[in-house]
Design a protein around this nucleic acid. Structure first.
Lengths: 220, 220
DNA sequence: TAGATTGTTAATCGATTAACAATC
DNA sequence: TAGATTGTTAATCGATTAACAATC
């Protein structure tokens, strides 16, 4: 490798596995904070969650914090660092599309503000639901989605409609200028370049479980 | 590598990324089946879902099906092969612990049988809920969980309780002989060797979304 | 047949794990 | 100080992607 190549190495994007592990550290750290501990080592976190200590240190390094040899990381600082890194300190307004059982459950969860998300409005086609509120979030007609998203500069849309309606919901959100979609429908959304889609598909998780279980049982 | 090593290579477990992609193929294939198509190529699947064709072929290979050069894979056979591989054809009885908003939503989903899961009972501590049914699933007292799990030989437990109650719920399920836990609580469960845990933690998915979005916006 | 697609091996890429000097 | 832990580089591992002969 030439010196130039070495110098020009661009800042790498955070690996997704790292991003997925950070919330797990966060939950453990918040628990430790409760117990009054002041600092924690990567060794401890790793043992507690079943990871490799080096991996934990590398993950933490991405968030920008530095630890101290011998003592480890300051818990309060580390929590702050991770939350900052995931952008969970700036509460982002979001639209939710589809107020079925899952959508209703999400509106009722009430803890999404801890994860930087605030549902300002929900949308549905069902006349019975429009005009009402679900856990204090107003339910509006789908027809209002595009304009309202534009006016409010909404960046995040959450799709909890049935599969057949998901692409249309996505299209509307995108027309409204949304930048990121959290998709719960079991379908691949087609979106233009620049729009982020994160699939929270339960069936993917379930597939891992059922296959591994069948595998384990077959070995009994 | 010696000849012996080559011969003794053990059957590798399916990589998790493969297991997570299979349901995505399945959803697409079911859609294609509706349209009347008879066969599909890995090239087409890859283009449709944004994957690499070779990857699609390798994934499909794990399920044991073989395709035909020039034409590709028979859609009906491929659907069957994937469902078989994920063990979604044998409906497995499952217990659900925690009938809050998420638990209720899951009981109401009604499609889990398509994914090999059948909720035979739900459990809660709330006296108001015990004895009732939620979407036709009876809600029972937590005190009945262990015995009933043993008697019914339940293999899968789904945890939808708040974080503070999750470990206790897991302990009960394990005492009842459960083999696999689908965990929705934002906490790391400690389980004995041999018990599978699959975390369906929404916060992990959300972390990916919020970090990438913040990253994208900062580059505007 | 010609050409598209499979099945499979090899090359690449990226993430995980090991090793260890620096440091508190 | 001695020893535990960090930060970082190197080695390993495994998954993805490229290449291509076999085949329908």
């Amino acid at each position: 490798m030439t010196k130039t190549e070495k110098t020009n190495k661009k800042i790498k994007a955070t690996p997704e596995p790292t991003l997925r592990r950070l919330p797990r550290y966060l939950h453990l750290l918040k628990f430790l904070r409760e117990t009054g501990d002041k600092s924690v080592s990567s060794t401890y976190i790793a043992k507690e969650l079943g990871f490799d200590p080096t991996q934990v240190r590398k993950d933490i390094e991405y968030t920008g914090i530095v630890g101290r040899p011998k003592t480890g990381f300051n818990i309060v600082e580390l929590i702050s660092s991770i939350e900052e890194f995931l952008n969970w300190k700036n509460i982002t307004d979001a639209f939710l599309v589809g107020t079925g059982s899952l959508g209703t459950a999400m509106l009722g969860y009430g803890r999404f503000k801890d994860y930087g998300l605030n549902f300002v409005a929900a949308f549905d086609n069902n006349e019975m639901k429009i005009g009402k509120t679900i856990h204090e979030t107003p339910v509006l007609s789908m027809e209002k989605l595009v304009d309202l998203a534009k006016r409010m500069h909404i960046n995040i849309g959450v799709i909890t409609v049935p599969a057949f309606a998901a692409q249309h919901s996505a299209d509307l959100l995108i027309e409204g200028g949304i930048r990121a979609i959290w998709n719960f429908a079991p379908i691949h959304l087609k979106v233009p370049e620049g729009v982020l889609v994160e699939n929270a598909q339960l069936t993917q998780s379930l597939a891992v479980l059922t296959h591994k279980l069948a595998d384990a049982i077959s070995k009994d």
